[in-house]
Nucleic acid binder design. Structure first.
Lengths: 194, 194
DNA sequence: GTCTATAGCTAGATAGAC
DNA sequence: GTCTATCTAGCTATAGAC
């Protein structure tokens, strides 16, 4: 039996990703984690603190939980960018295009987040961008020297997040694929321009 | 004094855009519109039906409320695309990067929307994409013939929505500007490739 | 650390006079 | 069409025994 605190976090992570933060009640978490209210409030001051811990877990796990699985067997730095995007596509189609990026969903759901929440959302985005920026940096002179690697990584993130948003709304991976195909074309043209 | 129903819709539109749907209570709408509960429930069966009417209003108003103001004095079809994106940037900076695209926010906030809600969100995205696709179609042979105009319009939408998401989270227009600059560069390379 | 029971509040929605 | 008062359900969080 895993640690109680971990069970709470695991349950909350799934529920926040599938139902959102506001639509997930503490009772939902308790039921899903098979835990009593007293235990949850023993470990966390309140519901928002559970969210903070979930966001910290995402941030800490971006390597082992997201990047490493996406990049096993993929060495080419530019292929890695699109392997990462393909990972999000896999999550989409595996859930009938209803599950996307949990960070993005929370970022738009919580309109006026308390500073600690917003900071953690931003930190997650920053870590994603830094990882992809690293790919583009590693691509070296395959990309024109004057191309801003970090801005290109931000562009990859907006493509993914916007693609997930449209795919979920249309319940179809087609808009996600359209956007990623355009990004792939852009990167190919950058490579051809060297 | 405007029509009561219109006052309700105007108040709900602002509240849903600034606070979100879930965080806006019926009491908030009543107070903001200076209307009593009996009046709201006379015109609408419930809160969700107010949302449906708001989404219909966005859809009906995409020309007069969004495209027309963005495109006055802008005749070049490709400039029109970026004038539209600049309009969203203006909304961002005017609100300290806390207000973005109301449709996108609702699309990610409401995780399992009832079919009528999801259909209207999709219809709003479709209308946006169709308008931008028209711009790229009007660009004619300034773009390579084999470029999918509709996919390019979807790409513009994902850039905008993703950019708004990051700008709001970072409370900075910089990521929005990064993404739009990359899109602009992509379109410029397409034009140069003809 | 875990359990049950419940406080205290706010939500969406309704009733019925006018 | 508009008003006030109110119902019922669900929420977060707490109390206090074990």
């Amino acid at each position: 039996m895993p640690d109680t605190r971990d069970r709470i976090l695991a349950a909350a992570r799934v529920l926040f990703a599938t139902k959102g933060f506001g639509s997930t009640s503490v009772a939902d978490i308790l039921h899903s984690a098979d835990v009593n209210a007293g235990s949850l409030y023993h470990f966390f001051p309140g519901k928002q603190d559970v969210l903070l811990a979930v966001l910290d877990a995402y941030h800490a796990g971006i390597g082992p939980m997201l990047l490493d699985p996406a990049w096993t067997g993929v060495d080419d730095p530019i292929d890695r960018v699109f392997a990462l995007l393909a990972r999000y596509r896999g999550a989409l189609v595996a859930t009938d295009c209803s599950y996307g990026c949990p960070i993005g969903s929370l970022a738009l759901e919580i309109h006026e987040p308390d500073p600690p929440v917003r900071e953690r959302l931003a930190a997650n985005f920053d870590a994603w961008v830094a990882a992809v920026e690293r790919c583009f940096v590693d691509a070296g002179d395959r990309l024109p020297a004057d191309v801003d690697r970090r801005a290109l990584a931000v562009f990859a993130l907006t493509t993914m997040e916007g693609g997930v948003m449209l795919a979920r709304t249309h319940r179809s991976a087609a808009p996600f694929d359209d956007a990623v195909r355009m990004l792939r074309d852009h990167v190919a043209r950058l490579e051809a321009a060297v």
